[in-house]
Nucleic acid binder design. Structure first.
Lengths: 133, 133
DNA sequence: CGTTTAATCAACCATATAGTTGATCAAACA
DNA sequence: TGTTTGATCAACTATATGGTTGATTAAACG
């Protein structure tokens, strides 16, 4: 049993969880409000057990939570989990776009003097590697 | 050989591609500019072949592209691929938040008259299921 | 030409994942 | 108490994934 909720592992599980069309449809359904396993399983051709496993995967990834209501276990979307994903993607997407802006500025002042025009692409610069937080 | 770039399959591959810390670090590196396979492989303990496979996965997922420069094959980030992911996530995250705003509005006017307060959560309403586009 | 460099192809192994069927648990109800 | 309902547990199968080593392609260099 793994008890290491390192940031990397959480991202692993969250991206992996969404890499399945069934689980994405479950998220889509839950975005409109909580639902039970039976309700979630209804639109699919697979067994209820399989859907139950999918929900466990989503829960373990921090994308949904489960409460108790008698013998029912309603599943709720956890929007914070989804937001962590967009945060990760946007970080690098925006860095990439910033690099292009830098390149544009370079080309505007320094008219294609040397490299940069070939394939070096946006300025490589020194290592910011992991812009944590 | 699969030739079906259905929207679902593209999302499958893109999310799956990011569900691996090595590939996420590759994306992080590429956000600062293109790099060759050897450059990308350098920080990792695994073989160059393994990194090459990771890059193929990212390419097949539409997150990077490869060009040619003599015997080198520089890898470039494809920001559009990343954006498709944030678009998917944000869609359902925002629907979910809208539901909560609706619930807040309901509770503000209609003082906890009946259900809704238990576990029914945000308004379930009729089926918008897949808010395509 | 022969060799070095950059990268991929091919075959293989270990592990993880998605699905199944059948049994079990736990609360509600009669 | 006995049964129905909602959901999970357990064991098993097949397929996919991530990694390895070894061979191969392809361009540059001497």
């Amino acid at each position: 049993m793994i008890v290491d909720p390192s940031a990397d592992d959480r991202l692993d599980r969250a991206f992996m969880a969404l890499a399945d069309p069934v689980r994405r449809r479950i998220i889509a359904r839950l975005s409109r409000g909580p639902a039970t396993v039976n309700e979630l399983a209804e639109p699919f051709e697979i067994t209820k057990q399989a859907v139950s496993k999918h929900i466990q995967v989503l829960e373990h990834a921090g994308l949904v939570t489960r409460t108790r209501d008698a013998q029912r276990r309603p599943v709720h979307l956890d929007a914070a989990g989804l937001e962590a994903l967009t945060a990760w993607i946007d970080r690098y997407r925006l860095i990439h776009e910033q690099q292009f802006r830098n390149l544009d500025a370079l080309l505007a002042t320094d008219r294609g003097t040397n490299a940069a025009a070939s394939d070096a692409g946006p300025t490589a610069g020194p290592e910011p590697e992991e812009p944590r937080s």
